[in-house]
């Protein structure tokens, strides 16, 4: 990146600003909660913090992946589950549920691994099917993704019916929750998503080229194919990570990149970094609401993101009309 010092300072300042807002939300969502007044030694504080961290990482990953998808497809409707990662994840979890009925121990702790594997595998299958003659046209990618998504989505109830198992676990898994997040989950997810998102941010030049249009970038001499595949693979892995630890959460990957797109004039790096923090903060707030709105009952994270997100998306649509 050949950025002027002034530009660099500007980016640095905005990152510091966004990060402090995220941390502020995280702290508030940890301290406050319905229920009862807590003293600092209370384990509840740690649990809330871990849940908050998982929510932040999942939201940041999804939003960043959303940026990649929207620039690759050059379409504001593109979202991270487009390559079939969500149905791949639930399919893998369904297979694990069936396998676990033949085992004497619980396989619950293997759900994240299965989900990550399923999501990554489904995306990889989509990418390799759509790739022909060394090129991956977005239309082919889109259609293949839809086909793989629907196929795996349909296979999940079929194999469950075949095995006579019930749908509960898979159903709830699909609704998204940060419950059960411990120190290990929180830290590993945060580390990995921060790492992968930085890789995307430092490759933001590719996003600039993608937005320029494939043909034009190609003629400038940019290796668009390679960059596209690289970004999509990382974005799919990010999506898989979020699915693994927080379930399938809709709307974040679609809404946040649209929300932060006004930053695009400052370059794709800015778009990526803003989306990272905005997505994370948005999901921290959503998770806080899911936990506390109907206390002591919890609602699926998916419902909250949609209820908060849909009206805003409508507003954006109306505003730009």
């Amino acid at each position: 990146m050949n950025l002027s010092t002034g530009r660099l300072k500007q980016i640095f300042n905005s990152i510091v600003f966004q990060a402090s807002i995220a941390i502020l939300c995280l702290v508030l969502s940890t301290i406050f909660g319905y229920g009862y007044v807590v003293d600092p030694s209370d384990p509840v504080l740690r649990i809330r913090l871990f849940r908050g961290l998982v929510a932040f990482s999942a939201g940041a990953s999804l939003a960043t992946a959303g940026v990649v998808f929207q620039s690759v497809f050059r379409n504001p409707m593109a979202e991270p589950y487009l390559l079939g990662s969500s149905s791949g994840a639930s399919f893998a979890v369904a297979v694990l549920t069936i396998v676990s009925s033949y085992l004497s121990f619980s396989t619950i702790s293997f759900y994240p691994a299965a989900a990550l594997f399923g999501a990554a595998a489904a995306s990889f299958v989509t990418l390799s099917i759509a790739r022909t003659n060394g090129r991956t046209p977005v239309l082919k990618l889109l259609l293949t993704g839809i086909a793989v998504s629907f196929f795996l989505g349909a296979m999940t109830p079929v194999i469950l019916a075949f095995s006579g198992k019930d749908l509960y676990t898979v159903f709830f898994f699909m609704n998204g929750t940060t419950q059960g997040a411990g120190l290990f989950e929180a830290l590993s997810l945060l580390t990995f998503s921060a790492l992968l998102c930085s890789i995307i941010a430092f490759n933001s030049r590719s996003i600039d080229y993608l937005l320029l249009g494939e043909e034009r970038s190609y003629h400038i001499g940019f290796e668009i194919e390679k960059a596209k595949m690289f970004l999509l693979l990382i974005a799919s892995f990010l999506t898989g990570l979020s699915v693994a630890f927080a379930g399938i959460i809709g709307f974040v990957g679609l809404l946040i990149p649209n929300l932060t797109k006004s930053n695009l004039s400052k370059g794709a790096f800015h778009w990526v970094s803003t989306s990272f923090f905005a997505g994370g903060t948005f999901l921290v707030i959503a998770d806080f609401s899911a936990r506390n709105l109907f206390f002591p009952r919890e609602v699926p994270l998916n419902s909250i993101t949609a209820i908060l997100g849909a009206p805003y998306l409508i507003y954006l649509v109306r505003k730009n009309a």
Partner: peptide, 16 residues
């Protein structure tokens, strides 16, 4: 205390 039917539980209440 968590509601009707089969509610999703916020563990915080369970600790209380």
């Amino acid at each position: 205390e968590f509601g009707e039917g089969y509610p999703i539980v916020n563990p915080e209440k369970l600790f209380e």
